[in-house]
Structure formats: C-alpha cells, structure tokens
C-alpha cells in the first residue's frame, strides 16, 4: 500500500525554510533584456537603446520591471540551462508544476551592469484539489532580490501548484484500492 502524503508534517517541516542567498552568474546585461522585450514586441527605447537611455533621468538602460527577469538575472544564467532552482524543495505527490499567481513589489529600478542576488523562503504550503488531482499541493514562495549595494530591489511572491499526471493519479488510486 502506498504511503499517505502527510500535509501537516510537510507544513511543519518546510514552512519558513530559507534558501541561502545566491548571486547571479552575470550582471544585468543588454542582450537578455533585448530577448525578453523581443518576445512580446516591447520596443521601449529605455530598455533597448543605450544612446536614448543615456539622455533620460536614469542615465542608462533599465531592466524592465518584470519579476521574472529580475529572478533570471539573480539566479539562472543563460547557459547551461538550469531548471532545478525553480523546482520546489518541498516534497509533493506530483512533480508537474504550474504558476498560479505572482506579486512583485518594486523598491528600486534595475540598470544594466547591476549585479543581483536572491534569497528565498517558503511562505506557505497547503493542499487543494484540482480537477485532475485531488491531492494537488500549492506552495507560496517569497524571493527577495537585492543589488550589489545590498539594497532590496524587489520582493516576489509566487504561488506554485504542483500536481500529478492523470496516469499517476489513476495508478495511486489503484495502489490504495
């Protein structure tokens, strides 16, 4: 018989868990910003054109205020493609993941050349059924992004849904029958 997933034990053990601060592999750089803008046809010169940006009050190209992009610069480098940091450290019945919501609070602008770091914390864990998985687990994680002066740039709160595939749900049901 399969072992039952104990949500209360997982909550007690993992809520509040902090992941050590990590520094981005590279500083904030032009081309990753260009690719990010390119995917949604964002032609904002403040994000793309050093000459134009130099004439503004900011004096340099800004990183668009996307929590996703800030987290990219603070953690994932462009190569090799490392996906693991996005996976939850919390044990869950299913390994499939879907982002459900994100809140990004900004405190400072980010410019090309800044060097970002991230520290993370598990803020909440709960179980809530979805149509394909009655044992889906939801994880709320907080990421604090800082710059090279240790100033907080933004705080990201992300809710991640983890679930099993329909095949896995059926297999688990048969195993416990």
């Amino acid at each position: 018989m399969a072992q039952r997933y104990d949500i209360e034990a997982v909550r007690q053990k993992y809520i509040g868990t902090e992941i050590a601060r990590a520094r981005g592999r590279y500083p904030v750089e032009y081309d990753a910003i260009r690719r990010h803008c390119h995917m949604v046809d964002d032609n904002n010169l403040l994000f793309l054109d050093p000459e134009y940006a130099g004439t503004t009050e900011h004096g340099a190209v800004l990183c668009p205020p996307s929590g996703w992009l800030a987290l990219y610069f603070a953690s994932l480098g462009p190569w090799p493609a490392v996906f693991e940091p996005l996976l939850p450290i919390v044990p869950t019945p299913g390994k499939r993941i879907v982002n459900m919501n994100q809140e990004v609070e900004w405190f400072r602008r980010v410019k090309v050349g800044d060097h970002l770091s991230v520290s993370r914390r598990v803020a909440d864990i709960y179980q809530k059924a979805i149509s394909i998985d009655p044992d889906a687990v939801w994880i709320v994680a907080e990421a604090i992004i800082t710059n090279q002066r240790d100033e907080t740039v933004c705080v990201i709160r992300n809710t991640l849904l983890t679930h099993r595939t329909p095949e896995e749900v059926t297999a688990a049901r048969e195993a416990t029958a």
Binding site: H36, D42, E57, H58, S66, N99, Q102, E103, E105
Partner: peptide, 27 residues
C-alpha cells in the same frame, strides 16, 4: 508566466513613460 508578465509590463511601462515607476504588480 514570464511571457504573460512581460506583456503586462510592456503595456504598463508604455503608458507610464520614462518617469513612471511600477511599484507593484499582481496577476
């Protein structure tokens, strides 16, 4: 999520101009 956020940010930053500051975004 990154794509969706980038699209929403494009709309907001185009509207708010160079002098605006996106203080918080929830979606």
């Amino acid at each position: 999520t990154g794509f969706t956020q980038a699209a929403l940010v494009r709309m907001i930053t185009d509207w708010m101009g160079d002098g605006g500051f996106l203080r918080k975004l929830y979606f």
